[in-house]
Every structure is written in C-alpha cells, then in structure tokens.
Nucleic acid binder design. Structure first.
Lengths: 126, 126
DNA sequence: CTGAATCCTAGCAGATACTG
DNA sequence: CAGTATCTGCTAGGATTCAG
C-alpha cells in the first residue's frame, strides 16, 4: 500500500493530467481526425481533395473535424475569394509536432498489431 | 502533383496502415482504457480498486473495458477461487510497451495543452 | 466482491437536399 | 466548390437490478 501511494514516476501524467490527455485524445482518437492530419502532412489540401483522400468521410464530418482541428490550432483554414471558391487547409506548426508522438504510436501498432490480432483470435476461440 | 504521389516518408503509416492504427486507437482512445492502463501501470489491481481509482467509471464500462483490454492481450485477468472472490488485473508485457508511446503523447499534451486552450479561447472569441 | 443482464437515453454519425 | 441544414438511426454508455 504505502509503496504505491505517491510514486513520482512519469506515468502519473496519465492520471494527473488525465482530463487534458483525454481531451487531446478525443480529438486525435476520433474516427477521422488522424486520417485528415495524415493527409495534410504532405502539404496543404483543399476541401475537395481531403474529401477525396479521406475515404468514406461525409462532407459534414469533414467540415466538423476541420473546424475542431482549426479550433485547437492544429490546422489553419485559408479561404480565397475566388470563383469558384477555394479553401485550403494546412497543418500548423503545432499540428506538425503532434505528428511525432502520433507516429510513435503508429509505429507501435506496426510492430504489435499482429500480436494483438493473434491475442484476439485466441481469446475469441473460447 | 507528381511530387506528392509517392513520398516514402514515415507518415504513410497513418494512411497505409490506417485501419490498424484506428483499431488500436479505438482501444486506446476510448473514454476509459487509458485511465485503466495508467492505473495498472503501478502494479496489479483488483476490480474494486480499479472501480475506485478510475473515477466516474461505471461497473459496466469497467467490465467491458477490461474485457477488451484482455482480449487484445494488454491486460491479464486472474480470478482466485476464494470467498469473497478476488480478481486481479495486471498489465501484460505488451501492455507495458504500449505505455511508452502513450506517455510520449501524454508528454506532448503536457507541453502543449496550454497552447491548445489558448487557441480554443481565441477561436471561440469570434 | 465481481460481474452479467436489462433497460433507457443522449448524442453523434450518415444520408440527403439546399445555398453562397 | 465548399459548405450548411435537417432528419433519422444507431449505439455507446449510464443506472439499476440480479447472480455466483
């Protein structure tokens, strides 16, 4: 008991800053944001390009997600007063830095997804 | 166009392995799993301890999440035939390795959450 | 104590149609 | 082209109750 009470290890971040971690995870962890960010990583993209690149996303969801990302300062939105209208979305510096830990997670998945699938199979076999 | 077609940069993982990344994110990104994992990081915990530690979680959700984590091989469940019954949950080796990239993400949040909040405030001010 | 089963609800995602 | 508006269905998740 006593040895568990106040260990000052880095993992406390998960619980102590839990709410904030969750907030960011709510953004990064939802169905589409990551795919959008991944697409934008290669440079600015127009709304239509994103709609095409992020397969299966509805217009509505794309709009909403972009708003959220914009609100958090992860993405910028630039509308050009032309005809036809053109709007470009681009990762901010902040958005780019986020990519790093996210890629670390993606790397972990790459290494371990087969193990996970095996575990699931074994588990379901019962 | 051409310069964007096949860049072999590491970020392709997000799109190319998108489904798998998403699968893991569905696990790690949901409302409770991370808090559970964070709690278990300090050692094995009983059901009741988890229920208490992970504030606000319902019995149902705790059970479901633990099942999922168990299925993925991130957590082990050990039931002891005693009275009253005792069940202990513990991170597996796989679960521990997951902690590393997750903590990287948590660290990013620590560094940037204030920036994000500022962005949100500025955005909402309109 | 641990957890399964049921019921119930809010909120979110998809489809569709419309607009500047 | 880049959205907005509306409607609807679904399901994640909370509360409660029962059981081994």
């Amino acid at each position: 008991m006593a040895d568990r009470k106040q260990s000052p290890n880095p993992c406390d971040r998960i619980s102590s800053e839990g709410p904030m971690v969750r907030e960011v995870l709510d953004r990064v962890g939802d169905k589409w944001s990551l795919l959008i960010i991944g697409t934008l990583q290669r440079g600015p993209r127009r709304f239509g390009e994103l709609h095409q690149a992020v397969e299966g996303i509805s217009q509505r969801m794309l709009t909403l997600n972009l708003r959220h990302l914009e609100r958090d300062g992860l993405v910028t939105r630039s509308a050009y007063a032309e005809v036809p209208p053109r709007v470009e979305y681009e990762l901010t510096r902040l958005g780019e830095t986020l990519l790093e830990p996210v890629l670390a997670l993606a790397a972990w998945v790459s290494e371990n997804h087969s193990a996970i699938e095996a575990n699931r199979k074994a588990f379901d076999a019962r």
